Simulated scan of single mutants.
Amino acid sequence: MFLDPLATPGFKRSLFNAIVAPRPIGWISTISSSGKVNLAPFSQFNLVSTAPAVVMFSCNTPDDRLEKDTLANVRETGEFVTNVVSWDLREAMNLTSTPCPRHTDEFELAGLEKAPSIHVRPPRVAAAPANLECQLLQIVEILPEHPGETRSSVVLGRVVGIHMDEQYLTEDGRFDSSRARPLTRLGGIDYATVGTVLQMPAPFRRTGTSH
């Protein structure tokens, strides 16, 4: 089967969410220039590089306003925090995706405790296994070219601070994903967490040798 997204009648773009899965969830906390806090989950999220440490998340244009509060706040302040969603925080995360009027505090809506950040103004989710403090690097605008498409804004942020709950650290200083059980997004309303974990060393690479 071959599908052309532009030529297939009734093509559902949600199909991409099930194909490109599982996807980590960026639980993004921000603050406006006037001090109003926002917390929202984004499944269009990932790590871009480690040196420098950069993460990205993408916002689609909402139906009821020019852009989502998260994006508006990042434009105003240039800062955000990425909070890891554990399995135990799945219900709270889902509540923070509720469409709310601007300047609604989703921390309060979901009954989540705030924790202060060090290098940025937005607060962290205190119960999250890990939090990444981020400063804005760039916003890349992806503009619609065909009917039915919407504008997407890809936010790139440099990680300037890391908070980790020590119970999820191994003796050699690694973050234990199996223990933290991060929540991931599949297609539709399907979610998952860490399944089978195996260690697979990369193939040995010879350098400077001849035969």
Rank of each mutant, 00 (worst) to 15 (best):
I19T: 13
Q199A: 14
V140Y: 01
R185F: 03
L89P: 09
G161Y: 07
R206L: 12
P62T: 07
S14F: 11
V48C: 10
K114V: 11
P122R: 00
I118M: 11
N94Q: 10
E113Q: 15
F57D: 02
E166A: 06
R181W: 01
G195H: 04
R206N: 15
I162H: 10
A110Y: 05
W27H: 00
T50Y: 15
L109W: 05
G148R: 07
V37W: 00
K12L: 13
L95G: 09
S178A: 12
I142Q: 09
G78I: 05
L137R: 13
A180C: 11
T61E: 11
I28W: 06
E91N: 09
R206Q: 14
Q135T: 14
S49D: 08
V194W: 02
T193I: 08
E108V: 14
P22I: 05
A115L: 07
P24T: 06
N131H: 14
E67Q: 15
Q167D: 05
L39Q: 00
T98G: 12
I25N: 01
L169G: 04
V140F: 02
S86R: 01
D176H: 12
S86F: 06
I162V: 15
L169E: 05
V120L: 04
R121G: 02
S210Y: 13
P9S: 03
T104N: 02
E113L: 12
I139C: 06
N94M: 10
N17G: 13
W27T: 01
V197D: 01
L3D: 11
L95K: 15
F2H: 15
K12C: 12
V120F: 00
R151C: 12
A21R: 01
R124K: 15
T70K: 03
R102I: 04
L183S: 09
F16A: 15
P122V: 02
P122H: 02
L156H: 11
V125K: 00
R151W: 02
L169W: 10
P122Q: 08
D176M: 11
R13K: 13
S58A: 10
I189Q: 13
S43N: 00
V37M: 01
A51H: 14
I118W: 09
Q138R: 15
V154L: 14
L109N: 02
E145H: 14
V37P: 01
S210F: 10
R206H: 15
E171P: 05
P99A: 03
V154C: 12
S210M: 11
L112F: 06
L169C: 12
R158T: 11
T193L: 03
L132N: 04
R23Y: 06
S32K: 07
H103R: 10
E79I: 10
D176K: 07
V54M: 08
E106I: 07
I162G: 09
L15R: 13
W27Y: 00
G111M: 07
R206D: 14
P182T: 04
D63W: 09
E141P: 05
P99Q: 03
